[in-house]
């Protein structure tokens, strides 16, 4: 089952904003969880989303992917991670005995829970983990209000 992000326009601060993820907790365990967010992708990488006061941080698992093969874009509050993992690491004369690694094109979209400052987004790929740091827009940050 492919869950399209258009269905998630309504904003639920905890779970509703994320793609490939239905509205209720049960869907955590159904097959939509594994579905690529983009149709020609072979798989959708697993990811975590966290926040602190200043930023939203998205971490995606991309083992075996070179940084030249990753494209990240941000449009209308939706972060898209796309790219390709090499089809095969084995040389010509090798015979495959077990194949579990997910390869080929991947794509994943995430609706961000806050407005972010697109000009200040940074990303780093290290040891197979892609870490994207998205500073919150000034308006989205928590402000303390002084009681007079």
């Amino acid at each position: 089952m492919l869950v399209r992000f258009e269905e998630h326009q309504s904003f639920d601060p905890l779970i509703g904003q994320l793609l490939g993820f239905g509205r209720d907790v049960d869907s955590l365990y159904d097959s939509s969880f594994e579905s690529p967010a983009v149709e020609d992708a072979a798989f959708a990488p697993h990811l975590d989303v966290s926040e602190n006061k200043e930023e939203v941080v998205v971490v995606a698992e991309l083992p075996g992917v070179k940084k030249e093969e990753v494209k990240i874009s941000l449009e209308k509050g939706v972060l898209t991670i796309k790219g390709k993992r090499e089809e095969d690491t084995t040389s010509g004369d090798a015979r495959g005995l077990l194949r579990e690694q997910r390869r080929g094109k991947f794509a994943r979209m995430v609706r961000l829970p806050y407005e972010v400052d697109a000009a200040k987004v940074s990303a780093e790929l290290s040891d197979g983990l892609l870490r994207i740091v998205l500073p919150k827009a000034e308006a989205a940050r928590a402000h303390e209000i002084t009681v007079r």
Partner: peptide, 17 residues
């Protein structure tokens, strides 16, 4: 992923992070 050549077995394990 596991594969085999004449000389060796090759194992590749995804262990991000």
């Amino acid at each position: 992923d596991v594969s085999e050549t004449g000389e060796a077995y090759l194992l590749h394990l995804d262990m991000p992070g």
